[in-house]
Simulated assay, not measured.
Amino acid sequence: MRPGTIAAVGAGLVVLAGCQQAVEAPFDPGVCYAVEAGAEGEAPRFNKVADNQPQIEFCAARLEEVRLRFLRMGGSRQEIIGSYQGQFIFIDRAGVWISRTLDGGRFNLLARTGDGRLAMPGAIQRAIDGAPLAVSATTAPDPTAPTP
């Protein structure tokens, strides 16, 4: 064989080796899944968490409930992965992120407020240094306070 042919066959084998089957999230309408990583070389498992979820934010809330329930039972995992209608959901201490793939770029869906709740990123007020401000309950005005 000529060296050019060997190089072409070798390059083709390298390209084929790099084309692994990507994991796709199920696209069942309204079904929220928790994703558990499979053993070495196995595909991840999709465990149903909730049905009839109208939006991805509701699925993220169900997954946050699962994450907190495991932490209250003594678990130590701070992150959880889920899926909803073809999108992957990643929940961690910073907030909720979404992506079309397990290992692709992630986009911020919900951020944590100063007191740990989840909110839309644009709704969170931040201090001058960028730290989120805690959201407090509204209270009745103090009648003895001077008016500005």
Rank of each mutant, 00 (worst) to 15 (best):
A43R: 12
Q85F: 05
A127H: 12
G74L: 05
C19D: 08
R77L: 12
A7G: 08
G105A: 13
A131R: 14
L109A: 06
G105W: 02
A8L: 12
I81D: 01
D115H: 13
I6A: 13
I6H: 05
G130V: 08
R126H: 10
R112G: 12
G116R: 00
F107S: 11
V14T: 14
D129E: 07
G130H: 09
P132E: 07
Q53P: 04
A111Y: 01
L110P: 02
P3H: 03
Q21D: 09
R72V: 05
A22Q: 15
I56P: 00
F70I: 11
I89S: 02
G38V: 04
T101A: 12
P143S: 08
K48R: 15
R2W: 05
Y84C: 01
A127V: 02
P26V: 03
R126S: 10
L110F: 06
Q53M: 11
G104K: 00
D142K: 03
R62K: 10
M120T: 03
G74M: 06
A60F: 01
R77D: 15
E24V: 12
S76C: 06
V15R: 15
T5S: 11
Q78V: 06
L133Q: 14
F70M: 13
D142W: 04
L110C: 11
R67K: 13
Y84D: 03
